[in-house]
Simulated scan of single mutants.
Amino acid sequence: MQCDYFDAAVCRSCTLMGVDYDAQLAGKVAHAERLLAPWTDAAEAQVQWLPPVASRPEAFRNKAKMVVGGTADAPTLGILDAARRGVDLRGCGVLSEGLRAALPPIAAFITRAQLTPYDIPARRGELKNVLLTESPDGRLMLRFVLRSSESLSRIRKHLPGLLAELPQLAVVTANLLPEHKAVLEGELEVPLTADETLAMRLDDVTLHLRPGSFFQTNTEIAAGLYRQAREWLDELASASVWDLYCGVGGFALHVAAPGRRVRGIEVSAPAIESARMSATEAGVDATFEVGDATAITGIDAPDAVIVNPPRRGLGAELCATLETSSVGTVVYSSCNTESLARDLAAMPSLRPRRIRVFDMFPQTDHYEVMVLLQRSAD
């Protein structure tokens, strides 16, 4: 993939830009193989490496997280340079075509509504970030991250024009972030449209995404992860499954099947509300509850557990809980093979049987790896 922004050195976020895609994918597999070698190279190891799942090398991102710079009359949507000036990246090639097409009308809306970009050094202005998410069917969720509610009346006044220009806009909100700190969004969300969830339809499952809820950046690869987990658990005929760090229920709802009991646990109450809505619509046997998966101290012996933790991994406490439980199967989806390796070392009785790399983030060193772990008899 060729990128004018990268070539001009105005954005270097995609660290592998310009590297042949096949070489990128091979490098990620080699990295995973190196870090997981202690579990795969031993004489007694019974591990199958499945072929990696490739992504489209461009136009794969379903999210645009754009810092707003410049002025209300000439806003930039992209990143900030070293001097905290706005760098416009509306033509970024890793964004989906739908996201790229929506950014110019959104920039024009910023001008019409006179939303003054936030000046970080001066600590002045209102509009900090524009967050845009696209569903598989092309619908959009738009979030304006604001310093205060001062501009809400102007946003509401001009919003009908934006909705007419971008009829694919399904959800629009204002997120309030009054603090001067390096975070993407605040805690208070103000809905500006009747719909408050974005329907994400993947295969035969519809997930409801609320503002602020986590969803994988690459929709096609996320669907591949869900399919793989379902395939493994169906093959093992797992009758009861727990999904820890379940988010909006992606894994749990995909593995739900007649005769299988599924339970999801997630610390985010809005995400659990979305998962329950999806389960009710689908009519599946899946229950969801708010809770800290990391702090679970006992597991009442489901057949299988799915874990999809943040980059820091499971941590010592949850690893110890899983290690001492009677759970026979763990499906571990990891975005950080280094923390995955630490967790595997803390769960010696749960041994890798199958491993597969999923290229969630082309043009970067990052990737997802899924491991099927099964309890050793010895």
Score class of each variant (00 low, 15 high):
residue 4 D to Y: 05
residue 105 P to T: 05
residue 273 E to W: 11
residue 210 R to V: 12
residue 117 P to E: 09
residue 169 L to M: 02
residue 138 G to L: 06
residue 163 L to R: 13
residue 107 A to T: 11
residue 102 A to I: 10
residue 366 H to D: 09
residue 254 H to D: 09
residue 263 R to K: 13
residue 43 A to Y: 03
residue 99 L to A: 01
residue 374 Q to S: 05
residue 28 K to L: 02
residue 216 Q to L: 04
residue 136 P to Q: 07
residue 56 R to W: 00
residue 275 A to T: 02
residue 15 T to A: 13
residue 66 M to D: 03
residue 63 K to A: 10
residue 207 L to I: 07
residue 30 A to H: 02
residue 138 G to D: 06
residue 134 E to K: 12
residue 295 A to M: 15
residue 319 C to K: 04
residue 171 V to D: 06
residue 302 P to F: 03
residue 161 G to L: 04
residue 220 E to R: 15
residue 231 E to L: 10
residue 189 E to M: 15
residue 295 A to R: 15
residue 64 A to T: 13
residue 334 S to W: 09
residue 294 T to Y: 05
residue 272 I to L: 07
residue 217 T to A: 15
residue 5 Y to S: 14
residue 229 A to Y: 01
residue 276 R to S: 12
residue 2 Q to P: 00
residue 291 G to Y: 06
residue 348 P to V: 09
residue 112 R to M: 08
residue 357 V to P: 01
residue 73 D to R: 14
residue 328 G to E: 14
residue 152 L to G: 08
residue 301 A to F: 01
residue 61 R to D: 03
residue 219 T to L: 13
residue 361 F to C: 05
residue 55 S to P: 14
residue 175 N to A: 07
residue 195 D to I: 12
residue 307 V to H: 00
residue 331 V to Y: 01
residue 227 R to N: 04
residue 242 W to F: 15
residue 276 R to Q: 15
residue 220 E to Q: 15
residue 322 L to V: 01
residue 347 M to Q: 05
residue 162 L to Y: 11
residue 28 K to G: 11
residue 219 T to N: 03
residue 164 A to C: 01
residue 355 I to L: 06
residue 330 V to S: 03
residue 304 A to E: 06
residue 23 A to K: 13
residue 341 A to N: 11
residue 245 Y to V: 10
residue 145 V to A: 00
residue 340 L to W: 02
residue 83 A to E: 15
residue 61 R to F: 08
residue 162 L to H: 05
residue 90 R to S: 10
residue 42 A to V: 03
residue 236 L to H: 11
residue 213 S to P: 07
residue 149 S to R: 15
residue 222 A to V: 14
residue 339 S to Y: 04
residue 260 R to L: 05
residue 271 A to Q: 06
residue 53 V to A: 10
residue 193 T to Y: 08
residue 362 P to S: 08
residue 134 E to F: 09
residue 180 H to Y: 14
residue 222 A to N: 15
residue 136 P to N: 04
residue 355 I to S: 05
residue 233 L to K: 05
residue 98 G to A: 12
residue 97 E to V: 15
residue 315 G to V: 10
residue 239 A to V: 10
residue 258 P to G: 07
residue 49 W to N: 09
residue 170 A to K: 14
residue 109 F to R: 09
residue 75 P to T: 07
residue 111 T to Y: 12
residue 50 L to N: 15
residue 224 G to D: 03
residue 140 L to W: 11
residue 68 V to T: 07
residue 72 A to G: 04
residue 13 S to P: 03
residue 251 F to R: 02
residue 355 I to N: 00
residue 37 A to W: 02
residue 16 L to N: 08
residue 126 E to N: 04
residue 170 A to Y: 04
residue 140 L to P: 10
residue 277 M to P: 07
residue 153 S to M: 10
residue 60 F to M: 09
residue 65 K to R: 14
residue 259 G to D: 00
residue 88 D to S: 12
residue 257 A to W: 01
residue 189 E to R: 00
residue 30 A to Q: 12
residue 301 A to D: 11
residue 205 V to P: 03
residue 74 A to Y: 04
residue 207 L to F: 13
residue 349 S to Y: 01
residue 324 T to A: 13
residue 352 P to C: 02
residue 42 A to M: 08
residue 115 L to H: 12
residue 307 V to L: 09
residue 159 L to E: 06
residue 335 C to E: 04
residue 319 C to D: 01
residue 202 L to N: 04
residue 47 V to L: 01
